[in-house]
Amino acid sequence: MSRVRLSFTPAPVHVRTARLVGVAVARRAGVAEELLDEVRLAIGEACARAVALHRQYGLTELVLVEMSDGPTYTVRVIDRAPIEAGLGLAALPPDELADEALTDEALTVGVGFALLAGFVEDLQVRPVDEGVGTEVRMAWPVGR
């Protein structure tokens, strides 16, 4: 198993870098070409969510992305926000998506979670093992 770790200041500009690295490692790990768009989107959503949480709580700690290949290609995106915030994900039903009362932030969170759940069959969102924070763990099959 090989591993690539990337950590970045919680700023939106760095999310693209994380996507690019994540897809490059996925390709090298043997993830099927037709899944790479989904890998790119899912890593972007998980990282954008982590950045949003860090900014919401005024946290300057780095967001960590760890990619590893083995039986599957696994990506873990780790934030350091309070757990209750990180686990507060919910998909929105269609009739609420364009509801006037829904804030832009709530809409983006709901849509982001819908994308993660829709594109990643093997998805887990759980508290980190040590300290404060949440881990979004995603895995895709490799074709070797």
Binding site: A48, T108, G112
Partner: peptide, 19 residues
């Protein structure tokens, strides 16, 4: 080439402004 939840949120925001 790429559209994420933030972009989708912006599009919904425009729709709501126009209503």
């Amino acid at each position: 080439d790429f559209l994420d939840s933030t972009g989708l949120g912006v599009l919904v925001g425009a729709l709501k402004r126009l209503r």
